[in-house]
C-alpha cells in the first residue's frame, strides 16, 4: 500500500519531459522562389508530458510519425514548430554546452541492432564511447564500468573484445542497451527495439528493459508497432495517426474503454494467439491504406477510413480532449462515451 502511495506521490511531481505543439514538416517540393509548395506533415502539433519513472508507449502504423517524433525529442531532427522542455529547460533554445549535457541524460535505443552498431568497433569501445565522449570515466574505472554494464545487460565481460558480427540479434540489442544506459540517463527513447528480433528473444529484451527501468529508475518512451509488446511494457499509451495523437490514456483504460475508432481498428487487427477465440473476437477491419500525407483531409485525419464518419468529421478537426478519468481522445463521436 505504502509503496503505491509513494509511487503516486513521485508521479505527482513536475514532468520530466514536456512537449508542446511539436510539429515537423518535411518539404517535398518548393516553388520558384524556394518557398515550400508541398510538405509532408510527419508530426503535427503533438502535446505530451512524461512523468518521472513512467513508460509511455507510442503506437501507430508505419508513416504515422512516431519515429520522427522520437528523433525530434532528442533533437536529432530539428522540429519545424513547437517546444520541448526537459526537466524544465527549453531543449530547442539550448547552447551547445547545455545540449551536450542534456544528451547525457537522454539516450536512444534503435530498431535495427545490425546497423546501429559500428561493425569495425569492438564491443568494449562501443560501450565505452559515450563514457569517453562525456569524460565520465578513464583507465581502470572505464574498464570496470564497461564490464559492469555488460553484466547488467546479461553479457559476459569475456565477450568485450569481440566485434558486433560475432553476436546474434538479441545479443546485439543488449549491446545497444548497454551503450544507452552507460551514462546513467534519465530518459531513454526506444525506437522499435524488439521488432527486428525473434519471438523468444523479444521477451528477453522486454524483460531486460523492465528490469533495468526498475533498477536504474529510468523513464522510457517506447515506440513500436507491435501492440502486444507496447502494452506489455508501457504504463500509458499514445496512439498516433498521421502525425497526430488521436488517443492517449493509461494502458488499462485504453484497452478496456477504447474511445477512438482508429484505436479500436488497430487493436482488433492484432492477431490473437489463441485459436479458440478465432470466431468470437470482434472484428473491426480498417479498410483502405493510409491517405496521402501531402494533402491531408481538412477535417479529421481519420475521416477517409472511419466507419462512423459524418459531414462534421469532414469539415471540422476534432481536438484532443480528456474525459473525467483523463482519457484523451480526438474524435467528435468517441466510443464508450
Amino acid at each position: 500500500m505504502t509503496q503505491q502511495v509513494q509511487k503516486k506521490q513521485s508521479l505527482m511531481k513536475a514532468p520530466l519531459l514536456e512537449v508542446k505543439e511539436l510539429s515537423k514538416h518535411f518539404v517535398v517540393s518548393t516553388n520558384l522562389f524556394g518557398k515550400p509548395k508541398e510538405s509532408v506533415k510527419a508530426v503535427n502539433g503533438v502535446n505530451l508530458s512524461l512523468k518521472k519513472g513512467e513508460t509511455l508507449g507510442i503506437v501507430g502504423e508505419s508513416g504515422c510519425g512516431k519515429s520522427t517524433m522520437g528523433n525530434t525529442i532528442l533533437r536529432l531532427i530539428e522540429p519545424t514548430k513547437g517546444s520541448i522542455f526537459f526537466e524544465g529547460q527549453d531543449v530547442l533554445n539550448m547552447t551547445s554546452t547545455q545540449l551536450q549535457k542534456m544528451r547525457k541524460e537522454v539516450q536512444m535505443i534503435f530498431q535495427d541492432p545490425f546497423s546501429s552498431l559500428n561493425p569495425r568497433m569492438r564491443v568494449f569501445d562501443i560501450i565505452a564511447e559515450p563514457l569517453r565522449t562525456h569524460k565520465a570515466a578513464v583507465g581502470k574505472e572505464l574498464q570496470q564500468r564497461v564490464y559492469e554494464l555488460l553484466n547488467l545487460v546479461g553479457l559476459d565481460h569475456s565477450q568485450a573484445n569481440r566485434f558486433p558480427h560475432q553476436f546474434s540479434g538479441g545479443q546485439r540489442q543488449r549491446i545497444g542497451i548497454a551503450r544507452a544506459i552507460a551514462l546513467k540517463p534519465k530518459l531513454i527513447v526506444c525506437d522499435e527495439p524488439v521488432s527486428a528480433l525473434d519471438v523468444s528473444i523479444q521477451a528477453q529484451i522486454l524483460n531486460l528493459l523492465l528490469e533495468l527501468k526498475e533498477k536504474l529508475q529510468l523513464t522510457l518512451i517506447f515506440i513500436g508497432h507491435g501492440i502486444p509488446a507496447v502494452k506489455y511494457i508501457s504504463d500509458r499509451i499514445a496512439v498516433m495517426y498521421m502525425g497526430e495523437i488521436v488517443e492517449m490514456a493509461d494502458k488499462e483504460s485504453l484497452f478496456a474503454n477504447t474511445r477512438h475508432p482508429y484505436t479500436q481498428g488497430l487493436i482488433s487487427a492484432v492477431p490473437i494467439p489463441d485459436p479458440s477465440l478465432r470466431e468470437v473476437s470482434e472484428q473491426v477491419i480498417l479498410e483502405k491504406d493510409l491517405p496521402d500525407q501531402r494533402n491531408l483531409p481538412k477535417g479529421c485525419s481519420f475521416y477517409s477510413r472511419c466507419p462512423f464518419a459524418t459531414e462534421k468529421c469532414k469539415g471540422q478537426k476534432p481536438e484532443l480532449k480528456a474525459n473525467e478519468e483523463g482519457h484523451l481522445v480526438a474524435c467528435h463521436y468517441p466510443l464508450h462515451a
Binding site: L206, P228, Y232, F255, I272, P273
Partner: peptide
C-alpha cells in the same frame, strides 16, 4: 514468450 493483448500483464517467460 508471446505478449498477449487480451490478457492482463503477467511476466513474460522468455
Amino acid at each position: 514468450s508471446t505478449p498477449k493483448i487480451h490478457q492482463l500483464k503477467e511476466k513474460l517467460q522468455s
